[in-house]
Design a protein around this nucleic acid. Structure first.
Lengths: 223, 223
DNA sequence: CTGTTCATCTCGTAA
DNA sequence: TTACGAGGTGAACAG
């Protein structure tokens, strides 16, 4: 990894056009060739960047170096270096990578194992119940034996309501299931999504991840 | 900005849990306190990070330093530094920031100012016309006085068609507007999006950004 | 290889 | 402050 601190101006042209006025910034060039330009503030996202694979060309000399980075999608990043304050390279080797735990898939597992938390007497028919337009997260039957399709999201936005509506439309064509009602379950449901869901007769359910995890661990303790 | 190259292990706990095994990485600490951990490859996104504002604590000594970064949302980033290979700081001053050109807002402005480019006699009612499920980009009336809802995208994909369909559904409940037709306008419309749009009776319109900008500047020249 | 969905999304902006 | 939608979204996964 090469790290350069320099007073520079930058122009990007590609999916949009962008320009950075002259200032001191960090230019980061990784081993795979990708380039990132960071200011000393803001979040982790660089001001400008160019992903690998790309072509890096250096031209000019002295106090007016120019870096031009291009790729095969006709994107172009032009960096004018007016003054280089630091330039260093570091050997780092390959990275073993990140291990994650606690994302959305876990939520579906937890709820599938505890469908009676949705309403008393609810029974799971199956997870990822297939339809022609994709699988529904959960298909259940309530205490009266009526089919219920459940769509689970971490954050319930309007797209998820559309998705569930489409599933219901298809499920209701199956005379063995009809009539099928819908439940939209999420840790958080946005107001607009709620409006649309209720407009379509879909029930909204707020999930408590910690509570579900608590129930799970309590049940495990019983055995 | 402080840049440290070190052999380290990292643990993050907060919105999820994540762990990084021991390896040499770049640790970046910006002036506003945010911390990012980069490997020498992958894209511009760091492996782990912690945004400002946060609390940074350094403890231990010699070859076993520990950095603990916490914030008020009970997120915690723990960095064990097993070997520091480089540690430097750089004064960079504030950044004038990025100037962008060619994003969706520009397209909407340009088209709003030139609605007769959509079709002859078209008149703008208002931009960001509100509905219960969000604002429509443009509401217009055509030469016959019939209401037309326009959804503008830079890249026209299928979810934009869904979005416009929802707006039309709600707008058509308003007896002052009914019947409302839809136009899906984008610089580029994906084949699947076009099929769905036409299936729903929504007209597709390809926008030429340069052309719209040209019309705009020509009109300016007239005055 | 495209298409779809998730993300510690980030980021801006308007109510 | 919160809600909402765009993003040079990126990244992972399924078909």
């Amino acid at each position: 990894m090469r790290l350069v601190i320099a007073k520079c101006t930058v122009d990007y042209s590609g999916r949009l056009d962008a320009h950075l006025p002259q200032a001191v910034r960090l230019l980061m060039i990784k081993a795979d060739g990708c380039v990132a330009i960071h200011a000393d503030g803001g979040a982790y996202k660089p001001l400008n960047w160019m992903n690998a694979p790309n072509l890096f060309r250096e031209s000019g000399e002295g106090s007016e170096l120019t870096w031009i980075v291009t790729n095969d999608k006709s994107e172009k990043l032009t960096i004018q270096l007016h003054e280089v304050l630091s330039d260093s390279s570091h050997e780092m080797g390959s990275d073993p990578g990140l291990e994650k735990d606690g994302v959305e898939a876990h939520l579906q597992e937890l709820l599938a194992a505890n469908v009676e938390q949705i309403s008393a007497g609810m029974v799971l028919v199956r997870r990822e119940y297939p339809t022609n337009i994709g699988p529904v997260d959960l298909l259940c039957r309530d205490q009266n034996g009526q089919a219920v399709a459940v769509e689970i999201k971490r954050r319930g936005e309007i797209d998820g309501v559309e998705q569930l509506s489409r599933y219901l439309e298809f499920l209701n064509r199956d005379s063995n299931l009809k009539p099928v009602t819908g439940i939209y379950a999420a840790q958080e449901i946005k107001p607009q999504a709620r409006v649309l869901a209720e407009d379509r007769g879909i029930e909204c359910l707020i999930l408590d991840y910690d509570e579900l995890r608590g129930i799970e661990s309590n049940e495990l303790k019983l055995f």
